[in-house]
Write a protein that binds this DNA or RNA. Structure first.
Lengths: 198, 198
DNA sequence: TTGACAACCTGAGGATCCCTCAGTTTGAAT
DNA sequence: ATTCAAACTGAGGGATCCTCAGGTTGTCAA
């Protein structure tokens, strides 16, 4: 609800802030290299910080993973607003889905954690996920009102589709990434008219 | 290729066979309770066997996971043959997909490992996975020849869809399992006529 | 029945990672 | 300069992984 909640919980002292940022940067690198189960001790070490400091800032692994993606989720919410204003409803929805899927599969394991957060209150980024859920729901409703998307599709189902596509993308070893094609198939399944070519 | 490869690699001595079976049974129970990352030492202990014995029979975690699902995969291959004989092509394909998705999500983490095996030769159950891949491809081709399914769908894409649905099912915490609905949406996306009601 | 041996089993142990917490250091407000 | 809450440190107990040197046992042939 209140985005400030995140900012407020960031450390106040200068050294705390510095370490917080260093840990986050190291975590991004590590997660992208090894997935969401990268070694936390290695991350702390790369950040030039003792393990205890990492745990001080991020009491759970999920909280660290989620912190690394907070910016991306915020972008997604903002982008939803822009797309809704600039494009026709179906374009806005499909483009947003594409971007969301890419973000959800930034590294291995992320989409699972985000899906968890989305439906489990009490996780650190639940509020952010819920906001994003609302963004998606808004875009969906607009497309449905315009008659472009089948009326019986629920927001939860939309996110199931997106999560599924992200999972496929995440699985993609070098070479075949089936997610764009998968997304197209899904879109053709949920729209009431052919999807425009890429 | 040769199914005997699996049987031949099973232990020959009576005590070995006994332990092999006990480990497999314990593993099934543990994986269903805790997912594919259950503790191997706990599994060995439950099987009444030292940890070294577990590693003797199953040198990697993946080999153990795959062994627990070998029967299921064999069933799936056999079932494909039956369905192809008994039903019209679209029914056969959709029913098979439903069963496969259920099997792929027997426990948390399975679908990821199977997907890996399917495209990575050198994994213990690659041959079995490849056989299943062929079964699915056959059913797909039949449905396409009959004009029920869009001609441009490839077998790999079919398995992407199934894997995605299985992942959604695997994520499902108590309550909402979106996979049946997801599968229906997918089917409506890939068929050339409406899917029959459940 | 009895070697003989390959197959099998055991479990200690080094390595890694998790997470906590008692003690120490330090930024910043007064 | 003083004070103290915030922040940091890193040793350490617990869990799990996986290996390997050495002991046990099933099986087969004589």
């Amino acid at each position: 609800m209140d985005d400030r909640a995140y900012i407020a919980q960031r450390p106040k002292r200068a050294d705390g802030q510095r370490n917080y940022d260093a840990i986050l940067a190291a975590a991004r690198k590590a997660f992208e290299a090894s997935g969401s189960d990268a070694s936390l001790e290695e991350i702390a070490s790369q950040a030039g910080v003792a393990i205890g400091t990492l745990y001080r800032h991020f009491p759970t692994r999920a909280s660290l993973v989620e912190a690394t993606t907070r910016d991306g989720l915020e972008n997604l919410v903002a982008q939803a607003g822009r797309l809704a204003a600039d494009r026709d409803p179906l374009d806005a929805l499909t483009e947003w889905m594409r971007e969301a899927v890419v973000h959800f599969s930034t590294f291995r394991g992320l989409v699972g954690i985000l899906t968890q957060s989305m439906y489990d209150e009490g996780t650190p980024s639940h509020a952010m996920c819920a906001a994003m859920h609302r963004s998606g729901a808004d875009l969906l409703r607009a497309a449905q009102t315009a008659g472009c998307v089948r009326a019986d599709l629920t927001p939860d189902e939309l996110f199931d589709l997106m999560g599924a596509a992200a999972w496929v993308r995440e699985q993609a070893t070098s070479g075949r990434d089936g997610s764009p094609r998968l997304l197209r198939l899904m879109l053709e399944g949920i729209t009431t008219r052919p999807v425009l070519p890429v």
